[in-house]
Design a protein around this nucleic acid. Structure first.
Ligand code: FES
Ligand code: FES
Lengths: 155, 155
DNA sequence: CTTTCATGTAACTATCATTGTTACATGAAA
DNA sequence: TTTCATGTAACAATGATAGTTACATGAAAG
């Protein structure tokens, strides 16, 4: 139900940071690699910095680094830090004004959206940034849904 | 993850049709009720007509009617008829160009999206248009362990 | 201290999707 | 034949996101 892909971009960048933790990576370098603009990179990482997932440094030798070991960063954390949401019935301006039918339908859809998102969060919680970087997840995905094959906490 | 609300609009209209099946409702009438344009109504219902959920008639006394008893129309059917999708990692133009990291992340996210959507479809399948129209769904929501139980006024 | 580098942020433009609107063709009932 | 209502194309309006430019802030290097 989304349309952007902020999560994909953020994880892409994080994968870069995770595999090259020696020195900070600059927005400019990441922008070249991702075929985009440095400001876009900074915008994408702004929320993650506030969430304590990455850190930034100015000046010489500055740039972006992961704030913690990649193994301790779950995709769920990244997802919520970006403020992503599954919402089947977003409020349109002032459309909810008084109509009972609409409110009822919206509430039902919201409940389902919440359930779907809860499941999504559970799944995202089973994969860390380190898993992504290592590429182990790929085999895991191909096993179609066997969620915790690796060192993941059981539900 | 979406931004429009096609599903909400479609269900809103369908609720109207379900409770007033005596005579077809015109796009113009529905548009007035929904505070929008007749063409918007037609566009919203076009997919549902192709899916055999509603029928339309031209000329005098024409308009829209539900093609089947509302009890046999599940929200899932409406959802799929509208082509809605949960997609955490949509492809951006030609962004998938060769980058292995991105493709890997995208595949993982796609898997999770699919799981979340599968759950959503299961939930949507448990409610019919008749349930919606009757308002029974509210109690049903509370039974499915929804997180937020709004204090429902006895109406 | 001055220079250089890199982030932080605002402001603007470009692009794209969706919605709202107008206009006209098609077909059915009166 | 007239009137009604859908079907559809075409276009403008809106809004969200991405891309770009510009400049202030701050830190390291010289
Ligand atoms: S690895 Fe995908 S662009 Fe750098
Ligand atoms: S506008 Fe008609 S019931 Fe919601």
């Amino acid at each position: 139900m989304k349309r952007d892909g902020k999560l994909l971009i953020a994880l892409h960048i994080l994968a870069h940071l995770a595999v090259a933790p020696v020195r900070p990576l600059t927005s400019a370098a990441l922008a070249v690699c991702l075929c985009t603009n440095p400001v876009v990179i900074r915008r994408a990482l702004a929320g993650l910095r506030e969430a304590g997932i990455v850190t930034s440094a100015k000046g010489h030798g500055g740039g972006w680094t992961v704030a913690r070991p990649p193994a301790t960063i779950s995709l769920r954390e990244v997802y919520v830090a970006l403020g992503e949401r599954i919402d089947l019935a977003p409020v349109r301006g002032s459309a909810g004004s008084g109509c009972l039918i609409e409110a009822t339908v919206a509430r039902a859809l919201d409940g389902f959206s919440a359930e779907a998102e809860a499941l999504l969060l559970r799944r995202l919680d089973t994969i860390s940034l380190a898993d992504l970087a290592a590429g182990f997840h790929q085999r895991l995905i191909e096993q179609t849904g066997s969620s915790h094959v690796m060192s993941a906490p059981a539900e």
